[in-house]
Design a protein around this nucleic acid. Structure first.
Length: 494
RNA sequence: GGGCCGUUAGCUCAGCUGGCAGAGCAGCUGACUCUUAAUCAGCGGGUCGGAGGUUCGAAUCCUCCACGGCUCACCA
């Protein structure tokens, strides 16, 4: 932390701060209420020519950060950046008089408020001719270079505040992220859904298969888990009589970090009584095309090298047919041994003790998943992979489940919810066997959830969508860390 | 966790087969009242991620460590 030259740069700025104070200016106590944002000024007067502007004589004020400074001795230009954009400002000694000397103590990075007359420069740029300004915050650390910005990826994540100041596209991403969530919420509310909040601290980490984070409650002297999914609580609400509910919030999984995984990530789960997964597929098409249209203004969007088309309907194909389509021979679907051999021959890693369904799932991930670029519903999964899903009437070894893949990634997972308490209990017991065999990711039995099903849950369909991955898709980002403001990193120093 | 790559000034980056650590921007001093990455003149700024090793000599070669990136593994 003690690099000498940086200290020197900071010292120089502290000296300026002290000089300002000796002149009776307190740079952190300024009060200023701008009457416009930079974009409002540019929108409103951007088309008005120089002469008209002189005639109507507009006075305005803005506040923001100085991001560029060009000093001419008796005049100076600067760019002022606020949350909406930036505008050029112009200081002149003959207008500011005594106050002009303060420009000497102004640095790139300082936050100031300015007030003055709008005009156009010789090069026709809309500019504020400052006739008064106040210091609102003195910046003591130098900002990254004006032209290249901050490129170092690690620094961008660790000091996101700097990233946001100097890299405008980052701000865009997070504005879009909010838009996506807003329209998602809007769509569901229009469809009669109730937004709810269920616990983030669980006594049993259920609803998914993942390693949980542990925490501890002192007063109750009890271990708790950060939730890995809200599913079992949302279904309790169906039992309670809410017919359409959703929750947007963080889930926590104690697993590896990658460009597609952050330990805490944002999910939406929503549940609809008296509907099944077929209804939900159509609903998902409507939901996604609504959001994409609103946020991107078009249903065809660019993602990396692809153009993704969100126009419904989306392709729909069963897991087995998708495998067949990619040349996986049908005879391995029912033969555990053959399936393992087929996979191993192709270098696909099969975890030991994997059931036939698990082997096929591995093959699917390896052979099919990355090729699902356009929105595609994969439907009808084996029952062992889906302990909370309802069996398919025509084929009880399968469940009424779909996953939506876009750009080679799983975006949504949904099914007709299992509401048979006896079947549910059996499947939990089945899972417990796996837990006894050492698979610690299998959740414990949730007796209370079974109890709730015994009270009676209406037939329902439910879906989870990974918000971060959806945001990646709609903002053309390849890493989940670029859509999470403060992604988890190891501490810098030990 | 494995493999590959990276870490040099506040920022962006050069630095060849080992031989005095560089540039641009930012900063400081000065000039300049319409600039647009302003310009011009001058100046300062380095534990080359850290620790060892090889060598007369290491930013450069070797080992270990730290942090990060990509990737594989993991991942309902």
């Amino acid at each position: 932390m003690q690099e000498t030259p940086l200290t020197e740069l900071i010292q120089q700025r502290i000296k300026k701060l002290e000089t300002l104070r000796s002149l009776g200016i307190e740079p952190y106590n300024g009060i200023f209420e701008p009457d416009a944002k930079t974009n409002e000024i540019l929108d409103k007067y951007g088309n008005i020519d120089k002469e008209t502007l002189e005639e109507i004589n507009i006075n305005t004020s803005v506040a923001g950060r100085v991001i560029l400074l060009r000093d001419f001795g008796k005049a100076a230009f600067a760019h002022l950046q606020d949350s909406k954009g930036k505008i050029q400002i112009y200081f002149r000694k003959d207008l500011l008089g005594e106050k002009f000397q303060l420009i000497k103590h102004l640095d790139i990075g300082d936050i100031i408020g300015v007030e003055g007359r709008l005009f156009r420069t010789k090069t026709n740029e809309l500019t504020i001719e400052v006739n008064n300004f106040v210091f609102l915050s003195k910046s003591l650390r130098p900002l990254p270079e004006k032209w290249h910005g901050l490129k170092d990826i690690e620094a961008r994540y660790r000091q996101r505040y700097v990233d946001l100041v100097v890299n405008p596209s980052v701000k865009e991403t997070f504005i879009k992220r909010q838009q996506i969530i807003k329209y998602l919420r809007e769509f569901l509310e229009n469809e009669g859904f109730l937004e709810v909040e269920t616990p983030m601290m669980h006594t049993i980490a259920g609803g998914a298969r993942a390693k949980p984070f542990k925490t501890y409650h002192e007063a109750l002297d009890m271990e708790l888990y950060l939730r890995i999914a809200p599913e079992l609580y949302l279904k309790r609400l169906l039992v309670g009589g809410f017919e359409r509910v959703f929750e947007i919030g963080k889930n926590f999984r104690n697993e590896g970090i990658s460009t597609k995984h952050n330990p805490e990530f944002t999910m939406i789960e929503f549940y609809v009584a008296y509907k099944d997964y077929n209804w939900l597929m159509e609903f998902t098409e409507k939901l996604l095309s609504y959001i994409v249209e609103k946020v991107c203004g078009n249903l065809k969007i660019k993602y990396g090298d692809y153009v993704i088309d969100f126009n419904p309907p989306y392709k729909k194909i069963s897991m087995y047919d998708a495998l067949k389509e990619k040349g996986v021979p049908e005879e391995i679907f029912k033969n555990h041994e053959l399936a393992i051999q087929w996979a191993l021959k192709r270098g696909i890693d099969i975890p030991k003790g994997a059931t036939l369904s698990k082997v096929l799932d591995e093959i699917f991930k390896e052979v099919v998943e990355s090729e699902l670029i356009q929105p595609t519903f994969i439907i009808d999964y084996p029952v062992e992979l889906s302990p909370l899903a309802k069996r398919k009437k025509s084929a009880p070894e399968l469940v009424e489940r779909f996953e939506l893949f876009i750009a080679g990634r799983e975006i949504a997972n949904a099914f007709s919810e299992l509401n048979d308490p006896i079947d549910q209990k059996e499947r939990f017991l089945q899972q417990l066997q796996e837990r006894l065999q050492g698979d610690e990711e299998v959740p414990e039995m949730d007796e209370d959830f079974v109890k709730a099903l015994e009270i009676g849950m209406p037939p329902a369909a439910g879906e989870g969508i990974g918000i971060d991955r959806l945001v990646m898709l709609l903002t053309d980002n390849q890493s989940i860390r670029d859509v999470i403001l403060f992604p988890l990193l190891r501490p810098e120093h030990r």
